[in-house]
Design a protein around this nucleic acid. Structure first.
Lengths: 261, 261
DNA sequence: TAAATCAGGGTTGTATGATAACACGACAAG
DNA sequence: CTTGTCGTGTTATCATACAACCCTGATTTA
């Protein structure tokens, strides 16, 4: 019989538990924006912890923009739109639909970024992409080094847009996608996957090098479709209509599903 | 003469300063992934604060995924890819180029989202968009209620994609854009701006209602170009090449600059 | 010799109490 | 009606102590 271990206690810190508890109260509407939280002392006694732990929890929520506090007044629930950070909690990452949705978001970003990169790339950007490709060639498929260079390639493409936020957002989404894949744990490796994946990357690089925006987005679209297949995404059920109507119609089919590098 | 009051001091907390300081050390490479941080006591003495303050700062960095700590061992710098949150600090928001870059990212998201929404919207989504438009009609241009309904419209469009991450990301970027606009403080209001803006929104809604993906993205593109002009974005200097080469060429000019709702 | 056990110091996690800084209302004085 | 003062409550910070845990090295044991 296999062991049925409970999920590892992520964050055995009491402050984490307190922060999650307060966060849940806010998310479920029992604490509305503008409401004043109980005093630190009251929270400490109700949770059965020290006031210090409560303060660490509040510091965390404050840094996330969920609450704000003022000396001498108290702590208050902030407006939902005031969140200064974007975060995706670990539980929702494990759901199959969130995997598909994240992959769709990533695809939307990647395809547009590839086109933009083709029109703005500098020589240094090209060098960075080639270095990442070299790293992939010398690493075994699926290894840590391979994944690192894979992400590095896509990051280099994003940075070629000369817009730092492109890379920042893309890396964030890609990392969440990767975690989601790991949570599912359903990828299989085969020998020719490495060649296929490398070829897809090379076509992207060639188009960007040539300054061919349409070609770059098309190559990226094909790459994402291939990655979706490799990671076992069923493809089209959830997106019956073309995702990117602005693209030439011959590409639409390939865009429907997308996922790993 | 009108008073030129400074904005209130955001975050005079010592823990915020300590967290920023450590965060800067990591960002600038003086603390590399895997490195062990000084002990809490050492940090407390070097910063001249109590260990309690240091702990709040570390709790914050830990929640952001920048460091991890283990009882009895110490605190260590985490891999950059392990960051569980996406955040844009307030200082960089005030730079003019980050405003333009954020607006470009927002435009990329909005145009694609509008197309996707046109193919997937439900009746409830249409109702939500119409309610937001009604709210804009009854509120004075630029008022809090107006801005709230403006954002609500775009959020409704994003939620019509049936992909919750679309709305989450779009709202996050839009809020950062709005903060950036407020930081610049260079928007002027005129009477016909309300009519123009409303008309742009109505065209977006009509296209989405009709299921016209191309029309929706085109209408959104026009809206963003108009918003860019209204907020005083100079437009094209920073993006000499078309931003979205996958779009029909007649739209490219309008995409070059984009910003507020 | 090799493995297990145990003691000690160092570090983080938590608790507790105290003090300073600040906000707010009540109240008296002008 | 305005102003000044004061008392109370809350957050911000400090200081100290103890518990839980990791690591290392010496000691004991097989």
């Amino acid at each position: 019989m296999t062991l049925k271990l409970d999920k590892v206690n992520r964050g055995p810190h009491l402050s984490t538990l307190v922060a999650s508890s307060i966060s849940r109260e806010i998310a479920q509407g029992r604490l509305k924006p503008g409401d004043q939280l109980p005093t630190e002392q009251a929270l400490a006694t109700t949770f059965g912890v020290s006031r210090n732990v409560v303060r660490e929890a509040i510091a965390r929520l404050r840094s996330e923009g969920r609450i704000w506090s003022q000396q001498g007044r108290g702590a208050f629930v902030a407006d939902a739109t005031n969140a200064t950070v974007l975060t995706i909690d670990y539980e929702t990452l494990q759901r199959a639909d969130s995997f598909r949705n994240l992959f769709e978001l990533r695809g939307m970003l990647e395809v547009q970024i590839a086109a933009l990169a083709a029109t703005r790339r500098s020589d240094a950007d090209i060098v960075a992409m080639e270095q990442a490709l070299d790293g992939m060639r010398t690493a075994p498929y699926g290894s840590v080094a391979w994944l690192k260079n894979d992400l590095g390639f896509h990051r280099a493409v994003a940075e070629a847009t000369q817009n730092p936020y492109m890379g920042q957002f893309l890396v964030f989404v890609s990392e969440r996608v990767r975690e989601s894949i790991l949570a599912a744990g359903n990828q299989q490796k085969s020998d020719d996957m490495a060649r296929t994946t490398l070829g897809e990357h090379e076509r992207i690089l060639a188009a960007i090098k040539a300054g061919d925006a349409k070609g770059a987005s098309a190559a990226m679209t094909r790459h994402l479709a291939g990655a979706a297949a490799r990671v076992g995404l069923p493809g089209s059920e959830a997106s019956p209509k073309p995702v990117s109507p602005a693209l030439p119609s011959r590409l639409r089919k390939a865009v429907r599903g997308q996922a790993a590098g």
